[in-house]
Design a protein around this nucleic acid. Sequence first.
RNA 1: GCUCCGUUCGUCUAGUUGGUCCAGGACGUAAGAUUCUCAUUCUUAAAAUCAAGGGUUCGAAUCCCUUACGGAGUACCA
Length: 510
Amino acid sequence: MERRVRVRFAPSPTGALHMDGVRTALYNYLFARQHGGDFILRIEDTDSNRFVPGAEEYILDSLKWCGIEIDEGVSVGGPHAPYRQSERREIYLKYAMQLIESGDAYYAFDTPEELNAIRAEMEAKGETFAYNYTVREKLNTSLRLSAEEVKERIERGDQWVVRFKMPENEIVKMDDLIRGHVEVNTSTLDDKVLYKSADSLPTYHLANIVDDHLMEVSHVIRGEEWLPSLPLHYMLYKAFGWSDTQPLFAHLPLLLKPTGQGKLSKRDGDKLGFPVFPLRWVSPDGEVSRGYREDGYFPEAFVNLLALLGWNPGTEQEIFSMQELIDQFSLKRVGKSGARFSPDKAHWFNAQYMHVRDNKELAALYIPIAKEHGYECSPEKAEKIVGCIKNRATFPGEFWDLSSFLFEAPEAYDEKAQKKYWKGDAHKLVSQLRDILAGIENFENQNTEAICHAWIQENGISMGLIMNAFRLAIVGASKGFGMYEQCEILGKEETLRRLDKALATLPETV
RNA sequence: GCUCCGUUCGUCUAGUUGGUCCAGGACGUAAGAUUCUCAUUCUUAAAAUCAAGGGUUCGAAUCCCUUACGGAGUACCA
């Protein structure tokens, strides 16, 4: 019988969610949806020292903005609540004790200071320290100490940790859905800390395995940085006797910085001018980081570009709706090598979504922009404007530059454009065109265009000359979109006013 | 250092079990076409001796080995 697909996204609230993290969440979500399974959000806050206020809320907001819906977990609840690991502490202690009883783990009383001293000492000798089978019986552990002494130390309040007793010279055979078969000798691994008495919390490894088991997680889809600890996780499942129900693993390739080497970091974004966070983030010490949302990216575009960073459909399709991603996503088609993020392609994706965006939605973005510049703009007018400029824009932030002339009549006329277009019969022709427009009642662009073009053709006027001169008169420069659309938006009165002013200001031409 | 993972145009990548790949698409770049400016759109071009070397094979980007390079991990962090 096929197991129900249950996946989890398990971030740690130590700061803003990086786009790499959003991508991991997205792949988990797509996988869950495709298989009719559950997408669980679990917060892994087992490091009391690194907790950052606001981080959890930020994670929730980011997922929501991307359209990633949580089926179960923090913020929505579910049958395995609580989903915040700090609220499940007593569960982990029980399992840590179980491993001690079964002999798969032991108490260790070394203080971090002692360990650091040993490390430093060995490093000085050119050796590396590993807490493993070679040393665990020489250190202050329950493997060396007598049962009474262990009991006494615990009772008198000595701090202790539980470490996994990694066996010597055993081959762990693992399978990864993306990377295939991997084998590791346990002798190269060390005795990881599973639980610490100092804050009564487990470390990632224990909490992760216990929770995935308890929450009946079927597939673990996570970043490649976890691959080296996969053998430990296999060994933990084995020690608990859960190997037959352990989840299947898939380790995602890393997101690399656009240039140079290494993985994508916040600094790259600052330097190369693109965000690395989905949403704007203000760290507790007041440092502000830009976000895709605030930069004007549409969530659909962001999700689309993220989906293609590491995964590809095997076809030539590049634009995907969330539903299409759900239908077509496959772990088999996730690459093995790191994906380098390209700001150029990110722009292109957003432009694609901009071009087909509904005018009503864009108008809602446009109105406040106009207001910011001191102009009231009706929804009808905004829709018209936005319909004319959207395929020359990549971000809503460009809207004003592309259309401000509709609100602000030219004060002066661009000199270069004058030199180029205001010559020959320009003055005379624009003057004639003005009179024709003055006689038109219906200023809809199709109508004015039909009438004006008929006149242009009948008289054999150069299209380039008349239209460019016309543009200079109305806009004041060699920019803007279709002249007749512009006139329709300006209205007859304003159009004529601008023409009259231009004819009065610009020289008669020869 | 040690362990693990990776390596196809500048970038993202396609290339299912080796032949139809003198390697396809997209972004970016260049040229041209269209257009009332600009943009959009369209067409075309340049761009990878498939990291290098060695095998296996009639035949390898595809299988094997070695090397190089890159990445990750190596915490009482996740």
